[in-house]
C-alpha cells in the first residue's frame, strides 16, 4: 500500500531526532521585522512601529500642533497624493522601466511589484552589464530615479 511506504521512512526520521537536539536548534536567520496583525482599532499595524511613527499623524506638521481642521485637510491631501502614486505604480506593472542608480548604474527591467513601504521593487528580466537576471529585488534606497513611458 502506498500509505505504508510513506510512513516507514517518517518513523525512522523521528527516532533519529532526540527531543534534546530539537530544543537546541537555532533560528537560522534573525527576524528583523515581524508585522503585527490588525488590532482592535483596526489600523492594520502597530502604532508603536517605526512605520507608523514615520507615516502616522504625528509626522504631519499640523498633527504636531493638534490643529484638527488643518490635520484633516493635510490628511486628505496626502490620501490623494498616495493614491495617485500607488496608481502610477500600478500603471508601471509589466512595463520596461529604466532605473538610474548610484555609481552611474543605469539598468532596464520589467517592473513587477513594490512592498507596502516602497522600500523594495520586484523586477523581472533585469538587464545588467553582466547579463540578464531573470528576477531581482531592487532596494529603493539605491535608486535615484526611474523612468517609463505611458
Amino acid at each position: 500500500m502506498p500509505s505504508e511506504g510513506f510512513q516507514i521512512p517518517k518513523r525512522q526520521e523521528v527516532q533519529v531526532k532526540s527531543p534534546k537536539q530539537r530544543s537546541t536548534m537555532k533560528v537560522p536567520v534573525a527576524i528583523l521585522r515581524l508585522p503585527r496583525g490588525p488590532d482592535g482599532s483596526s489600523r492594520g499595524f502597530d502604532p508603536h512601529s517605526p512605520r507608523f511613527q514615520a507615516l502616522g499623524p504625528s509626522s504631519l506638521p499640523s498633527g504636531a500642533c493638534k490643529d484638527t481642521a488643518n490635520l484633516e485637510q493635510e490628511q486628505q491631501a496626502r490620501v490623494a497624493l498616495r493614491e495617485r502614486y500607488l496608481r502610477s505604480l500600478l500603471a508601471m506593472v509589466g512595463q520596461p522601466v529604466n532605473f538610474i542608480m548610484y555609481e552611474k548604474v543605469n539598468v532596464t527591467a520589467l517592473f513587477g511589484a513594490s512592498d507596502i513601504d516602497i522600500l523594495n521593487f520586484q523586477v523581472s528580466e533585469l538587464q545588467t552589464p553582466l547579463g540578464i537576471q531573470r528576477e531581482a529585488l531592487l532596494r529603493c534606497s539605491d535608486i535615484i530615479a526611474y523612468s517609463f513611458e505611458l
Binding site: 535615484i144 530615479a145 526611474y146 523612468s147 517609463f148
Partner: peptide
Amino acid sequence: SILLANPLENGKVSVLVVL
C-alpha cells in the same frame, strides 16, 4: 518622491520619478 511627466511627440507620456 517627485513625478515628472513629459508629453512625447507620439502621444505617449514619459514619466520620470525622482525618489
